[in-house]
Design a protein around this nucleic acid. Structure first.
Lengths: 336, 336
DNA sequence: TTGAAAGCGCTAACAG
DNA sequence: CTGTTAGCGCTTTCAA
């Protein structure tokens, strides 16, 4: 019940704690014979080192923090897998924190990182995050931090992102080519740089095709799921309803399909749809859904990899590291 | 850069570290005046306590571990949300570990918990987990552990589960009532108690309706996604193909729909489908999918709640705590 | 109301 | 090759 410590091993073997400690870490200073004895007893007594004692002493925790808005989105689920795969590989532990898109929570969470709890941070900021001093403070306290997906543009540190602007541009262009005249852009928040970049891509595609941009086509679908649904339905009920939709967030997909069904609008006949999502189910929707698929797993993996570079090399400079991993447009029937 | 410590505060204020420590924790022993001074300076110098120092001293870490097979499944994503919501509430930190369904990994992960890294463990075991000594050892080392969803039947500790048997029974019965003659049960592993219980429910429903159970109808869809798809397609190509399917795992949904499409089998005309899944997209599949939806968020939340009861009350007895939260059968068009 | 001292379990000089 | 010593930053008696 009470855990074995180095001290106990030392006493049992008539050795000093220093010797035992070194033996356990296979130090060259220790004779093979003693190493054997120590290891044997350690095994027998089920010795497991106390990580916090060694953290305290070595001033490194072998753990990283992952801060996410939420996890009920295929993007973040996949990203966690990517992150965890490299952390496990490196023998690191992963603390997970959800902000639920709340700035206050994000601040509270980050402020704890100035202590020694974690060696580094991976973060995708909340939709409310306008100010970034909490992030700058953590960085100033000496902790490496890397952004993935949702970044703060005014913080100079590594960013692992995807080509939001370009993929949105491509998606919009596709709709135009397919004959859409009134393309709506649905979003949930404009605080996020990624949403803005997607919006930019949308606008640029329209401009490049000589279309003019109708502000009424750029619609905010905020609030709870019911509100979102209502907003979409109202949009589609309008006389001048859109004949094309870009949904810049995964969770808009279901309400869009439902609203079309309810209003008896056929996809892609009456209206064509593209969605930013990683859901595998896109393949079996009816019609199958054209998606912009983000490299979620790869982004998570890359973010962790870059963070570990900073953790492993002293004074590794994260400031100018920006990695862009392209998204892919999967063309399916919803835009035929 | 170098972090403020209690020692620094003490020196600055000409107080002892003991006094500062107490002041910071608002001890009744300390005068209001000094408290004010300490707090003010702490704020000014951006003092953040080192959690590991206090963990070491207090022999409690204020962190729990969550061990999951994977996170790319709507069930686990939602469960994490539930867990995290109560952990955050209680001021606890959450370490996340993925076993990727590997027993060896699960063993390695659990073995670390015998140290002081975490105060308690929440686990959903891997599909490979037959032996449970690694779990018993952790419990024997004095750490409270609670299972959720995927349990080990031979380990006596709290379990948060759903009514797998009953919901499977109901789903199967539904298919029978709808006229299915040959109902296939698709699974991915029989090591898991939950899959077994679902299978039981299936068998019992058949038996209760006077049907006999055809072993060839109980089919393993293991391996990689491509294999799974092939297995399903082959099943549906058989002369005596099933006219009803129970998919006991979320990830089987997509290949089933795809195979039906490929083989030009109509759902529900030629074949009716029920799937165990929490995907919201079930609503917009075509046809909409009848699902057994597990109370994922609630299960995570309950698991954490029960764990915290054990953490807060000494000698709280987890042995006999079993909570069953019912799943719900959402009847939709795939079984019309 | 404050402080001195001991120690949580481990590591890292430095001696021997 | 092994041991002594000193502490990482914090909490907790116990004494003042």
């Amino acid at each position: 019940m009470s855990n074995t410590t180095i001290k106990i091993l030392a006493k049992e073997l008539n050795l000093s704690v220093a010797t035992v400690s070194k033996a356990l870490r296979d130090s060259y200073e220790i004779s093979n014979e003693t190493k054997q004895k120590v290891l044997a007893l350690a095994k027998k007594l089920n010795y497991v080192p106390n990580p916090y004692a060694s953290s305290l002493r070595k001033r490194t925790s072998k753990t990283i923090a992952v801060v996410l808005p939420e996890v009920a989105d295929s993007f973040f689920s996949l990203a966690i897998n990517g992150i965890e795969s490299v952390a496990q590989d490196k023998g690191y532990h992963v603390l997970i924190y959800l902000t639920h898109e709340s700035f206050a929570r994000e601040e509270a969470i980050l402020s704890e990182f100035k202590s020694g709890r974690v060696d580094g941070i991976l973060i995708s900021v909340s939709a409310e995050t306008i100010d970034s001093t909490h992030i700058k403070e953590v960085i100033a306290s000496g902790k490496p931090l890397v952004f993935f997906d949702r970044i703060c543009e005014d913080v100079e540190t590594a960013r692992i992102i995807t080509d939001d602007m370009e993929s949105s541009y491509t998606a919009t262009t596709r709709l135009i080519e397919k004959g859409c005249e009134r393309i709506a852009y649905l979003y949930t928040s404009l605080n996020l740089s990624i949403n803005n970049r997607r919006l930019e891509g949308y606008k640029k595609a329209l401009a490049d095709q000589g279309r003019k941009i109708d502000p009424a086509s750029i619609v905010l679908c905020g609030g709870n799921p019911a509100d979102t649904y209502t907003t979409i339905k109202n949009l589609l009920k309008k006389k001048n309803r859109p004949d094309g939709i870009i949904a810049c967030v995964e969770k808009l997909t279901t309400p869009i399909y439902l609203a079309c069904k309810e209003l008896d609008l056929s996809i892609p006949g009456d209206i064509k749809v593209v969605s930013f999502t990683n859901l595998q189910a896109a393949l079996i929707l009816s019609p199958t859904l054209t998606t912009v698929t983000q490299p979620a797993f790869e982004m998570g993996k890359m973010a962790a990899t870059v963070l570990f570079k900073a953790l492993e090399k002293n004074n590794y400079n994260l400031k100018d590291e920006t990695v862009v991993i392209p998204s892919v447009l999967n063309i399916r029937d919803s835009t035929s």
